[in-house]
């Protein structure tokens, strides 16, 4: 178990280093360096050179990389070439907003999907089960921005229950925060729930076919009870995998929802930085997102041996 976790942690660290090199290389070494991009194509070579000197861009790439990495390790993501402002506070603030959004969405998705998927598997041959399956298949095909548009049309523009955009931090007012949270969270969660429902259903169906469920029934448990006592924990392994992957993709996927609802999340900051050609900010935000994705993967990896004793002893 300890070896396993240490192994995963080491892999995490290695991946992080390689990913940072990749991000840095992509941003800094490709044609059109940050200064050029920031000033636009019309800038004079002198202006570009001046900016390069100001931000140390004339230094060798290796030095710049370690400079950048060293800064990040101390929590300093550098200064924007475009606005001249520090990037770290922007990232910290927007990550919190996106974090709330994404975690609320995945929790809601799990709360919908686990019972629904289990039910769909148990009622596999009934019209209810078939309907749930069909609905989830359709739900998967709806992009989250389309879901958001429909939700806004119905619940905001027509019924007027929720505001169609905006954000309020919880400290500014819990009621205002919650009311603004509903539509973005639901539009993210519905689609994720549809995906997760199919995975849960499929995992439960697989588990129901397992011999140990038959053993449990032979002991005197009913089919349903055997599933609850023996099946769900076994089904949890694939479901945890998928939920982890979903959390990671939500983190980036929230970009569009943040745009639609004008939420100051990290996605909005990323799009703004791209639009402003602010490569330093883009580089920092991308690195934070990659870090978060890798952390999620690490957490999921550590969950496996907790669920499954075989992984505990094997690795």
């Amino acid at each position: 178990m300890i070896t396993y976790v240490a192994n995963r942690a080491l892999q995490f660290a290695l991946s992080l280093i390689v990913a940072s090199v990749a991000v840095f290389a992509l941003m800094s070494l490709l044609p059109g360096n940050a200064a050029q991009v920031a000033l636009g194509t019309n800038a004079t070579p002198e202006a570009v050179a001046a900016l390069e000197a100001q931000y140390g861009l004339d230094q060798p790439p290796v030095l710049r990389y370690f400079d950048w990495m060293g800064g990040m390790l101390t929590g300093d993501f550098g200064t924007s070439y475009v606005t001249g402002a520090a990037i770290t506070p922007v990232i910290v603030g927007s990550v919190q907003v996106t974090g709330i959004l994404v975690i609320a969405s995945i929790v809601l998705a799990i709360l919908i999907a686990v019972p629904l998927g289990t039910f769909a598997a148990l009622e596999q041959r009934n019209w209810i089960g078939v309907t749930i399956s069909a609905l989830s298949q359709i739900g998967i095909a709806v992009p989250n921005f389309l879901a958001a548009i429909i939700l806004v049309m119905v619940f905001s523009l027509t019924l007027g229950w929720f505001p169609s955009q905006g954000w309020m931090a919880p400290v500014e007012g819990v009621g205002g925060f919650l009311v603004r949270l509903v539509l973005p969270v639901v539009s993210l969660a519905l689609v994720q729930a549809a995906i997760l429902t199919r995975y849960v259903r499929s995992a439960v169906l697989d588990v129901m076919r397992e011999d140990y469920i038959r053993t449990a029934r032979a002991k005197g448990l009913t089919r349903t009870k055997a599933l609850f006592v023996h099946g769900l924990r076994n089904a949890a392994i694939p479901v945890v995998t998928v939920a982890g992957v979903q959390l990671a993709t939500l983190l980036v996927g929230a970009v569009i929802i943040e745009q639609i609802f004008v939420i100051p999340g990290i996605g909005s900051e990323l799009v703004r930085a791209v639009a402003n050609r602010d490569l330093v900010a883009v580089q920092g935000i991308v690195m934070v997102l990659v870090l978060l994705v890798l952390v999620i993967n690490l957490i999921v990896d550590v969950l496996y041996p907790i669920i499954d004793p075989r992984i505990r002893t094997a690795a």
């Binding site: 011999d211 140990y212 053993t215 032979a218 002991k219 005197g220 023996h230 076994n234 669920i307 499954d308």
Partner: peptide, 18 residues
């Protein structure tokens, strides 16, 4: 289990691994 019980063929999969 009370009146009739069963032992299955596959010892590898008949017990809950968790």
């Amino acid at each position: 289990s009370d009146i009739v019980s069963m032992v299955f063929q596959e010892p590898m999969s008949a017990l809950n691994p968790l």
